[in-house]
Computed example of a mutant assay.
Amino acid sequence: MTLSRRAMLAAPLAAPALAQAQTWPSGPIRIIVPFAAGGSTDAVARIASPGLTQRLGVPVVVENRSGAAGSLGTGAVAAARPDGNTWLLTFDSHATLPALLPNLPFNLTGDLDPVLLIGGAPYVIAVRPDKPYRSLADIVNAARAAPDALNYGSTGNGTLGHLTMVMLGARTNTRMAHLPYRGGGLAVNDTVAGHVEMMIGSAALVAPQIAAGNLRPVVQFGPERLPALRDVPTAAEGGFPGLEAEAWWGVFAPHGTPAAMQERMGQALKESFSDERVRRTMTDTQQARLVLGGPEVLRPFLDRQVALWGGLVKEHRVQAD
């Protein structure tokens, strides 16, 4: 068999990477979460960490690097050596970074390789039980009757919750006043206290107050009803087809990380999240719908998310906090 000149030139370059992949992992692995400790992304990473440590045979450490809407930690992974020792576990706002922060020092799709789409959880509009809104149509009608009088809280400008309400306003020709909070807990507390008319957040964020009876869910924005919210209609069921928004978590590697490492990490992640105890934790605490889809799932999913939410950011000139 005769090798081409290109193959002969590539062979010396491929050999070290192959050897490295065969001996990986040989030391601690970092999963960088580009947000502060205590949020859902941090929780998901820490839920996965023990199972990864067990399956890979080395310590798997979660490192929080928050700041600039998640771009600081994401940039650190994009710039890291592609040696299998650094990985990114991030959240839905990842898709809005290029539109919100056009001067990013990295390319979202060119500098990071997709590894695994873990899953998602629907965004939910919730109100105090004494509020009159029983459906999404009630909210739209109230906003139409008094433009800008109705307000809602979210976890910040440019978050998917905020952008979902922007999309709702655009589709229904209504306007509501947005109150951006620096954190989900603050938005929840003010909604429970009655300082804000309603809020939008991930199902995981509002679930504890719903269970306690302090908030009532009005609508969920997933493609189907969440088992924990089986009595709450989706937006499509409420007469607003195509209006979907889900929080999601995904894992990425620095571009150029050997395929064998990515495949092994992806398999270890799938096995960890498939563990019955971990699966139950994800379902109960994060209200998650597990997908566990590999690069062939995450890559086109991310492209669609970037196009949808990035387009909304640009069209409505949304500014980051």
Rank of each mutant, 00 (worst) to 15 (best):
A37I: 02
A36P: 02
A146F: 02
D284E: 15
A79M: 06
R65F: 06
A76L: 10
S93P: 04
D83C: 11
A253R: 01
G256T: 01
P300D: 05
W249L: 02
T191C: 01
A80K: 12
A288G: 15
M176H: 00
D111V: 04
H316T: 12
R299D: 15
L52P: 07
A21L: 04
R299L: 13
Q22L: 09
S202M: 10
N107P: 05
S71P: 03
R55H: 05
V206W: 07
Q220E: 09
F273N: 15
A48H: 11
A236T: 01
G266T: 05
L104E: 11
Q287I: 13
V318H: 10
T159C: 09
Q305K: 08
T86P: 07
T109R: 10
V192C: 03
L112W: 00
A36S: 09
G266D: 04
G238E: 03
E246Y: 14
A48R: 05
G310R: 15
A68Q: 07
H195Q: 10
G156E: 04
W249N: 01
D148L: 13
G110S: 08
L215M: 12
A203D: 02
L168M: 01
T174G: 13
D42L: 03
P114A: 03
G73M: 11
V77Q: 05
E63G: 00
A268M: 06
V166K: 08
M1F: 15
A99Q: 04
G75Y: 08
A36D: 13
R182L: 14
P98S: 12
L89N: 00
N141V: 09
R30C: 05
G185T: 12
P50R: 14
M198K: 10
P223H: 09
P25A: 08
R30F: 02
Q220N: 02
G75L: 07
V297L: 12
R46I: 14
G110W: 02
G51H: 07
V33E: 06
T86Y: 05
G153F: 04
E197W: 08
E271K: 06
V60H: 00
A36W: 11
N103P: 01
M167P: 04
D130N: 15
V219T: 01
G222D: 09
T23P: 04
R230G: 07
V219P: 02
V218N: 07
D83S: 07
G75R: 08
S49Y: 04
A43H: 07
L112I: 08
G156T: 10
N173K: 13
R299W: 12
H162M: 02
R225L: 07
P241F: 09
Y152A: 11
A36C: 11
V61R: 14
A228Y: 00
I29W: 01
L56Q: 06
L163A: 11
